[in-house]
């Protein structure tokens, strides 16, 4: 009971503190901007721990954060092996191939109005499809190892990326293109110096959406068959053995990898599209 009480007290104190910081001049500083979300994160962990201890929730339903942390620290080699198998081999290679192919396709169909008019509705349609459903088929075709996971990832990221790239390439205004024409710039010069830079915000939007899709695709594809390592494999077998602390450790790895991946792409974006209004501070 005391654990519950402490959690509730901590929650109230954290809320009060967050409101105080948010409404004070400190909220404009970097420290304030980091402190408020960090406070919420810590609060969630403390309340979680308090509820699990206070209500004595069995570990097969919801393990406490401290237990998960212990498992995480104790099984680092296994987690690292799974991470390499799923993220580096499956998700990352599929991400690079899929996004690269979509970018190349967008530039290829850029010169033909007819292909654009035909491909865009189909691409939009397929981008909203449950493409994850092709996972069992691709696992059947490419075998159990990382190649089939990469194939699922390629299919998942291709259409969102294609739609964004094509839209981005149409972003430069008629005035700007006319200016390039008065410079007697060739098609490729216009593409490299005007239209590709103008397309970058859209391209990066596609790249950012694709980061999470890639991780999801690689993990879910492992449910349909995989060698004896990989995050998806570990999650599905540990659920069967009721080792939920291990499952949550894998989820932590996935969340960290996903956030880092997204953050890295966002950082590159900030460097490349420094001129865009949304990047100004």
């Amino acid at each position: 009971m005391t654990a519950l009480l402490i959690a509730a007290l901590f929650w109230a104190a954290a809320t009060w503190l967050a409101v105080r910081i948010a409404n004070s001049p400190a909220s404009a500083t970097l420290a304030g901007k980091l402190a408020v979300p960090a406070l919420l994160g810590v609060t969630i962990l403390v309340v979680w721990e308090g509820v699990v201890r206070g209500l004595e929730v069995p570990a097969v339903i919801l393990p406490a954060p401290s237990t998960i942390g212990g498992t995480f620290a104790a099984s680092l080699p296994i987690l690292w092996g799974d991470f390499v198998q799923t993220f580096v081999k499956g998700a990352l290679s599929g991400y690079v191939i899929g996004c690269g192919a979509a970018f190349a396709t967008a530039i290829l169909i850029d010169r033909s109005k007819f292909l654009q008019a035909g491909l865009m509705p189909v691409g939009n349609f397929l981008a909203a499809m449950p493409i994850i459903g092709t996972a069992p088929i691709l696992v059947m075709w490419f075998g159990f190892d990382w190649q089939s996971k990469a194939a699922v990832v390629v299919l998942m990221v291709f259409f969102p990326m294609l739609v964004n790239c094509v839209q981005g390439l149409q972003e430069s205004s008629a005035m700007q293109r006319d200016l390039m024409k008065t410079y007697s710039a060739s098609y490729w010069q216009t593409l490299l110096k005007l239209r590709l830079p103008a397309a970058m915000p859209f391209v990066f939007n596609g790249l950012k959406i694709s980061t999470t899709l890639a991780l999801i695709g690689a993990i879910v594809a492992e449910f349909f068959g995989s060698p004896i390592k990989g995050m998806g494999f570990r999650i599905s077998t540990e659920v069967g053995r009721l080792g939920l602390d291990m499952v949550w450790a894998e989820i932590t790895v996935a969340a960290l990898a996903g956030s880092a991946f997204y953050g890295a792409v966002a950082l590159i974006e900030r460097g490349v599209t420094f001129w865009h209004p949304s990047q100004r501070r």
Binding site: A18, I21, S27, T211, I216, A255, G258, F261
Partner: peptide, 22 residues
């Protein structure tokens, strides 16, 4: 303002967790 500052970053982070996978 407090909710804006604290919830929004976590809402974005929540989407990097592959919920589909779990």
């Amino acid at each position: 303002r407090a909710m804006d500052m604290s919830v929004m970053p976590w809402a974005i982070a929540s989407q990097t967790i592959p919920i589909l996978a779990i």
